[in-house]
Amino acid sequence: MNLRGDWGLAKIGIKVWGAYRFEFLIALLTTPLSLIIYYYLWKSIYSYMVAEIIKGFTFESMISYYVLSMIVGFFTWTEVDKWLEQDLIHGYMIKGLLKPVSFLSWYISLEIGMNIMNILTQMIPVFIIGFLFFGLKTASPFNSIAFAASVFFSFFIYFGLTYLLGLSAFWLKRISGIRRMRRAVFGFFAGSFLPLTLFPLWAQNIFHYLPFEYMKFVPITIYLELITKQEIIKALSIQIAWIIVIYTIIHLVWKQAYKRYSSVGL
């Protein structure tokens, strides 16, 4: 990878984002709506209880959880599986192959460019909305930095797994089913809809050995200071380990996919 080339690609990503800016701005205006829903849902659940804490979450931290879930979501958002599928169907693959960079870094730079704009235009506003209206508190400097690092790693895990699933398009051609399943499964097991601590214990134990919780749940718990410093260090190392594993697998699968591409022609 050379850095100057990648920055050039990221700039393309920013341009692509420019074309979609309207959609993103709408998302910004409408997504706080789902925070309102979660706010009322948990308010009525907490008011119906005697205890004030559910599995480590106070009402305030529960709402903060959803604000943060949204923020991490903006950062990790990707549709690279769709891009892969569309590029294969419409025969644009060749364009990507002709670029003087590896295929993966072409997509990844595009994605980073888009997400940089996402961060500026959505993540920061949602942070502000969270602080003003949903009782989000600032985290300690250590946790803030660890959160930022963890979210950064989350992006690579999320992107890597999505890319890996997207590569199946080389064999299946149409992967709209896989994409839909990906959204459901990733969302659910990463903790987008419900903190994973509310899941049954046996499930939580299994989750520790899967990459999903490192795509969203773990960074959030870091921010909310629900885990200790040692656990944070451990979590970050596991994230790095997952990244290494996932990108090694991508490398291997890509070789096969490329072989298939050049032999079948698709």
Binding site: L172, K173, R174, I175, S176, G177, I178, R180, M181, A184
Partner: peptide, 9 residues
């Protein structure tokens, strides 16, 4: 495959 996976999804 896509059809069955999508139905399942």
């Amino acid at each position: 495959y896509d059809f069955f996976i999508k139905t399942l999804a």
